[in-house]
């Protein structure tokens, strides 16, 4: 990837809190229009990385460019190009949502985005005070604020925490649409399914370092975990005469299913089905379970080496 193409560029970022190194020399680039996920357990350095990119924290090393801006030296320009939904933040309790949106738009020199308010279902909230909103409603308001300036880059730090299923799905749709329209989105989440479905690329942070970076498929494929094949037949013929499958290893028999683990699922499945056919048996249920991003994540977090 060339520097010119990158909407976000982080090189050798280091951030220390006293003797603790929260972010330890990480580097990554995010292309324009890409949805990039930052995953990691609590304290891995995700929020600190984002806060350095947002100009909320000074760095102890490295170079950051977000939408062409240095986050520390070009803060006002950055705020016009960057939308941020912080992991935890608040707004004045007694301000109305309409007043907050108007205030932010005033400082961004933009008109109040009625369309955006409608899109996120925030219209009924406009006459409510911030204190009267539920957690999910507050998240929606913060998201509207983050998008008020029509930013080039959007940082979402755990955006769906506290959202119900309907709002979560709605937000996912909006993230996809925004990405298609060319907005670059960085997303920190603990929801692996969310990361897998939304993100083009993912970086997994472990103890302040990037343990792995790539597409969700690349990351899951790189793990040591194997694909599981689970089979149940009508006559249970394989129970009595367990066949040797060249490309798979028998793991266990449970609840009427025989389970194998393998690297190459397609050839193993063909081999198993041939055995079933040769025994004059029929397949009742066949399941092929590929290793999930969550399993790969746990593998990395539990044993980063």
């Amino acid at each position: 990837m060339h520097m010119e193409e990158a909407a976000v560029s982080v090189k050798g970022l280091v951030k220390r809190y006293g003797s603790v190194t929260a972010v330890d020399g990480i580097s990554f680039e995010v292309k324009k229009g890409e949805v990039f996920g930052l995953l990691g357990s609590n304290g891995a350095g995700k929020t600190t990385t984002f806060e350095c990119m947002e100009g909320l924290r000074t760095t102890d090393g490295g170079v950051i460019k977000v939408a062409g801006c240095d986050p520390v030296r070009q803060q006002s320009l950055l705020h016009s190009r960057l939308g941020v939904q912080l992991q935890s933040s608040s707004l004045p309790d007694s301000m109305l949502v309409s007043e907050i949106i108007r205030l932010v738009c005033t400082y961004h020199h933009t008109a109040v985005p009625d369309e955006l308010v409608r899109k996120f279902g925030a219209e009924p909230l406009l006459r409510k005070q911030y204190r009267q909103l539920s957690t999910g409603q507050k998240r929606r308001v913060h998201l509207v604020l983050a998008l008020c300036s029509n930013p080039q880059v959007l940082i979402l730090d755990e955006p769906t925490a506290g959202l119900d299923v309907q709002n979560r799905a709605g937000l996912h749709d909006e993230i996809r649409k925004a990405s298609q329209e060319g907005m670059t989105i960085l997303l920190a989440t603990h929801d692996m399914a969310e990361a897998e479905t939304l993100c083009g690329r993912i970086a997994i942070l472990v103890k302040g370092k990037i343990a792995v970076c790539g597409t969700p498929s690349e990351i899951t494929a790189a793990g040591s975990r194997q694909t599981k094949i689970r089979l149940r037949t009508s006559a249970g013929s394989l129970f009595s005469a367990m066949p040797e499958i060249a490309d798979a290893q028998y793991t266990e028999t449970k609840d009427g299913y025989i389970e194998w683990s393998c690297r190459n699922a397609s050839s193993a499945v063909i081999e198993i089905l041939t055995c079933v056919k040769n025994n004059g048996d029929t397949v009742e249920d066949l399941r092929v379970e590929r290793p999930s991003l969550e399993e790969r994540f746990l593998e990395l977090v539990e044993d980063p080496v």
Binding site: E54, L56, S76, H79, S80, L82, V84, L86, S88, S89, S90, L91, P92, L103, V104, Y107, H108, H142, L145, A146, C148, S149
Partner: peptide, 24 residues
């Protein structure tokens, strides 16, 4: 109290990242 609350609750940070300066 409102000033301390603004710092503690993250209001100042939320304002800052939305382009409203601390000085304002």
């Amino acid at each position: 109290l409102p000033l301390v609350r603004a710092r503690e609750s993250g209001t100042l940070r939320a304002f800052r990242i939305n382009g409203i300066p601390d000085g304002a």
